[in-house]
Design a protein around this nucleic acid. Structure first.
Lengths: 191, 191
DNA sequence: GAAGAAAATTAAGGTATCTTAAGAAAGCTA
DNA sequence: TAGCTTTCTTAAGATACCTTAATTTTCTTC
């Protein structure tokens, strides 16, 4: 499990063996059963989290009680309520296991120590966050310029693997439409 | 102009005088008249850019020829087509001056040198990007869970200053609605 | 493998936002 | 200040997507 994490980092920045060993010591595993919560609205998010196995979703519940999924995460992805983590305020997001999952997490205090000791850790999270920003921006553009069926079609094309792991009503929530509407879209697409 | 830039960095990370001097040498000014482009679709985005004065917008034109504004930037903000910058692919965004503006920019090659020399520069962009990510995520949530008039109301409340600098049709584009619709929303709000 | 729970489908009526088009207001430039 | 261009408004008809509710299908659990 730790090896996957170190590999993930080394794909982006170099680490000495000593660095890698420091990193390994700082992370702890969390096991989640399907539907378990990694984080709930109102709790503090004091960890950065890496998915070793499984599938999770980050979502928000609005004032009308509706769920809005912000993103999914699978093996090798990072997932968090970054706002809550950075500002040390209670989480506004829920993070829940879509299937049985394993996550490696590091406490903020530990990570801050690593930032100071290892220049490349700062760089790693810079690059990861930049990539995440770009992906989120892409999504923002698409949700502004495309219709629901185009967004659905693109999602399936891009994340076929993920699409097979998650129920349709979650995909609908991610796409910003109702499950009923997604259902009729699918019917019309296969016609 | 360079002082504003250094101040902006020092608000987030410490810099020695020597560091600051290296940073200063690496940035160059760009003057823009209203409606001038800092970047156009198809060009390469080889610089990171900091706004010293004025107001700019980053937008995309979709396949139907419609503009979608991703964000505005004012004094003290960073603005770029980060995707293009990071992947060295032609820009998909336009960045244009909404009013006469001054921008300080650094070439990727120069910035990469700074990253290696100054740990704190890696950290600075990590933190800036994390903040940007969080802001973009906030926007994504709002566009999924709020109606157009709520989004308009929130924007005005949050960015009163900016709202006064930009024409309404740009605000409509940012909010993801037509200028006609924004116009009717405004009429109904003040009633 | 039966019973209950969760998810997906279908369809009818409703609403937010869009499209088109035309006219009014405001902002530049000579 | 006049004339031209850009921006904003108004309104009517169109459409994408929503809401509600009932039915069917699939998944879970004992």
């Amino acid at each position: 499990m730790l090896d996957l994490l170190i590999e993930n980092i080394k794909e982006v920045v170099p680490l000495t063996d000593e660095d890698a060993s420091l990193v390994k010591k700082a992370f702890n595993p969390v096991q989640l059963k399907k539907k378990d919560f990694l984080l709930r609205n109102g709790e503090y998010s004091d960890h950065m989290r890496f998915i070793v196995e499984g599938c999770l979703r980050a979502y928000k519940i609005d004032e009308n009680g509706k769920e809005h999924i912000l993103y999914f995460g699978i093996k090798n992805w990072w997932i968090n309520d970054l706002y809550s983590y950075l500002t040390r305020t209670p989480a506004t997001l829920f993070i829940q296991a879509v299937s049985d999952s394993t996550v490696m997490q590091i406490h903020r205090d530990q990570l801050n120590i690593l930032y100071d000791k290892i220049h490349m850790i700062d760089r790693f999270y810079r690059i990861k966050t930049q990539n995440g920003f770009v992906a989120l921006q892409e999504r923002t553009i698409n949700s502004m310029s495309q219709s629901a069926d185009e967004r659905y079609y693109d999602f399936v094309k891009k994340y076929r693997k993920m699409e097979q792991q998650i129920p349709q009503y979650m995909l609908a929530s991610y796409l910003g439409i109702t499950p009923e509407h997604l259902s009729t879209l699918r019917k019309n697409l296969t016609k």
